[in-house]
Structures are given as structure tokens and as C-alpha cells.
Amino acid sequence: MKVLLPLSALCALLMLASLLIGPAGAGLGGSLAALWSGEGALGLVMREIRAPRAVLGLLVGASLGLSGAAMQGYLRNPLAEPGLIGVSASAALGAVIALQTGFATAFVLALPIAALAGAVLAVGLILIMAGPGGGSLALILAGVAISALAGALTSLVLNLSPNPFAANEIVFWMMGSLADRSWLHVAIAAPFMAAGAAMLWGAGRGLDALTLGEDAAASLGIDLPRLRLRLVLGVAAMVGAATAVAGAIGFVGLVVPHLLRGAVGARPGRLLAASALGGAALVLAADIAVRLILPGRDLKLGVVMALIGAPVFLHLIWRQRRGR
């Protein structure tokens, strides 16, 4: 609890900042009044452009943070992160195929479903390759292979598109961005994120038990195959939905659990909620940074994330080496 409250407050603060910062550059009071009334050009900006962007940042960040924490808890490996091991890249591949074949326009939820399918394949493959114990080497090798394959196929599909703009979009799908997203994107992503969150939330007790090892967890009455299924579907739903609307945003699921693990007493179950809030705060902050550093140039979120994430990643490796 002592972690969740400050994190919630931080998220609220960043949401507000996200609503108030933008190229239109209106005053604080005027912006909030326009958000409330929804009148005039500023009302349109606040309600239809900034509000969905802020909400989507919150949802995407929470999804990625929660997914990272859940995967790390299950595999008992701090390197298991959706962006790093190719789950996001596979979700992006699913989304790109759906968009380019026209499947995405077949019905409203077709785009997130396609991304989810890509993510399910990747998570399933990772769990099979890494094995139940989740050895670091197998996990990372499988992840690198899946990332590379999904990334290459995404580039191929976009290069083959008859739309000349599509080839430039490789950057978006690999780096992620929240620019010019609307309530439509919130609406198609939110149901999948909610379903995924519900599945992962229930996995907390199982993840706590797993820290004692598989046998001990089983003897505590944890149904391991069921836990695994929950995890695969939950992570795929959340990462799939987030990637379908915002592209693949890396490092969130790596950095946030890493920073918060100590504060929750290293219990994976308690880390879930904290990581969801922490992920939301990180993505909101990064999206604000993107708008402040290079306004109007649509700097990709992944760039900022990598600047934060890479040092943490290197620190992790350093600590692991010294630990041995």
C-alpha cells in the first residue's frame, strides 16, 4: 500500500501534465475550462486530441508494466520483458498484417485481435523455448530470434505495401508513438487490456508461490498449467492491444519492475499492481518528454524509452555478473 498511493498520485499528476502540454500552447486555466465545457476550438483540442492521448498513455504504460512484472514473476527472470523478447514485435507484425491485408477494417476489434494473435504465438513460443525454469540464456536467445524474425517480417510487409507512406512506418511499429491517437484507439484497446489485467491480477498468488520453486508451488495447491495459460493469454491481450494502437514500446516492462522490486519486498504478486502504476507513470512521462524535447516532430517513444532502459539493462547484467 505504501508504494501504491504515491504511484497513483504520480500518475494523476502526469495525466494532468499530459493534458496541459501540447503545441497549441494554451493557458492552464483556459485549457481546463475548455476541457470541462468542450466548447470552441480549444475544447476540441482538449477533448478529442489531448484527452485520448493521455488516457492511452496511461493504459499502454499500465499494460506493459503489468505484463513485464507477470512474465518476470513466472519465469523468475528479470530479463523477461515483452519488448525485449519479441512479444511486442510479434504483436506489431500481427497488427501490420491485419492493416495491410484489410482484415483490420473487417470489424471493429479486428486490429487488436490480430495483434493479440501475434503476441500469443510469441509468448507461447518463449515459454516453450525457455522451459519452466526460465534459464536466462534460452530465454534471451529465443527472444532475440523471435524479435528479429518478427521485425524483419514487419519490414517486409510494409515494404510490399502499395502505399508509399507505409515503408516509413517501420519506425512507428518498432519504436511506438502516441501522436494523434483518438478515442477510437482507446475504445478498441481498452477491452483487451481490461481482460488481460483481470487474468494477470488473479495470477498474483500463484506467482508468489512460484518463488519457492515449481514443486513447492504445486504442493501449495497452485494449478501450474492453468497459471501458465492465464499468463500467456493475459500478457498477449495486454501487449497485443497496446502494440496495435501505439506500436512496440520497449523497456517499460524491464525498467519498472526493476525499480519497484525492492519497494514491494520482492514479492511478485505485490509487484503486479505497483508495476502497472509505475509503467503508466513512465509512459506518460516519456510521452510528455517527447512533446517537450522536439515539439511537432513526433519523436518516437521508443527512443526515449531506450535512453532510460538501456542503462538499467546494462546495470542488470553487471549485477548478475557480480552476483555469480
Partner: peptide, 30 residues
């Protein structure tokens, strides 16, 4: 480039758009 919110705030009286390609792209999604 003009951000969408700048366009909204500039309150144009006529917006001229061009051709669209049959397959979608993120660039045109704005």
C-alpha cells in the same frame, strides 16, 4: 508539418485534402 491541434486552433474556413491510397498507413491516419 502542422500538428493537428495547431490546425484546430488556427480555425481554417476551408480544408483541402488530397488523394488517399487504398491501403492504410499510419502517416495518413491523422
Amino acid at each position: 508539418q502542422m500538428a493537428l491541434e495547431q490546425l484546430v486552433m488556427a480555425a481554417p474556413e476551408l480544408i483541402v485534402t488530397g488523394s488517399r491510397y487504398p491501403t492504410p498507413s499510419r502517416a495518413e491516419s491523422v
